[in-house]
Design a binder for these strands. Structure first.
Lengths: 153, 153
DNA sequence: AGTTATTTGTTGCAAATGCAACTATGTCAA
DNA sequence: TTGACATAGTTGCATTTGCAACAAATAACT
């Protein structure tokens, strides 16, 4: 007889666990860059990345796109404004909304960090091999589509 | 002429971002289960999963294996003990260490949640297809190996 | 032995977080 | 117009978090 019921469940093969581990390790590497060199948090960097990529938009839009909690976004925006990386302007067509836009300084940071990001990404692809990297991207997108849109938090 | 320097950097194709998005969405689904039904946090569940899978071990070992911050682990262990899911015992060979072990109740939770986890996992594989799922696992392990062991935070 | 460094686990404290409540604005329909 | 509801963004508050400082035990040198 066994003194422990056969587990069968192995954390090391559990996808949510693997995803979190991978995300944490990989993110940390890049986070160190924008944290150390520009004093940005992850949320702040994401807000800037969205504005840099897509141009002026509201905080709510950024929240929808990047699934950032609205309180978090609000605070990130306030800090980014305080540091001169973005400006806010009441939208004329809907005065609840605030249109956010990067300042010169903000765009500069976005460009620099973007370049770093791409280098980081290239390094990742080299480390695990391009095919694996492509397959990974494909799988992640599939997951996000399957769970992200379904639950829609 | 363009008024914005060509960005080139796209957040939507940035691997750290994709990883975080996928991890967040997927984890949330399963987290709802152990949170709602057993009142466990993610860290608490991880501690239990490690103990259930590998048997008695110290908090520090769990931290090393699962890359959990030690303060977090300490607090999770205290709460799990308070709820009767595990016991702590000073190790006789090294009196700094505390050997943690699941109680009957704790093992019971582990078994039940493990079953739920496997079902969740099977559902994920079905949703995105078994090949994609396998490729995803392969890629994630490669990333963890490349970054997890190298940086070793 | 004696001194210094390392490891294990806990705690203090400031900062970050999430949820709910709130203001202000806009929409829809009776 | 009025009233019910929805959306954008902020703030209050209790909880969680992480870092640094700590205590206790052990290891590693000399």
């Amino acid at each position: 007889m066994r003194d422990t019921p056969r587990p069968d469940f192995d954390l090391d093969a559990f996808m949510p666990y693997l995803l979190n581990q991978a995300a944490e390790h990989v993110s940390l590497g890049f986070a160190a860059t924008y944290k150390a060199e520009y004093g940005l948090t992850r949320t702040q960097w994401r807000v800037m990345a969205n504005l840099g990529r897509f141009g002026a938009m509201s905080a709510a839009e950024i929240c929808r796109i990047s699934h950032i909690e609205k309180t978090r976004a609000s605070r990130a925006v306030a800090q980014l404004e305080a540091e001169g990386y973005l400006t806010r302007a009441r939208a004329s067509d809907d005065r609840r909304r605030e249109d956010l836009a990067l300042t010169e300084a903000g765009r500069d940071v976005y460009i620099r960090l973007g370049a770093r990001g791409m280098a980081y990404q290239a390094d990742m692809a080299a480390k695990i091999g391009p095919e694996r990297f492509a397959a990974l991207e494909d799988g992640l997108r599939a997951l996000i589509a399957a769970y992200g849109d379904a639950t829609d938090d």
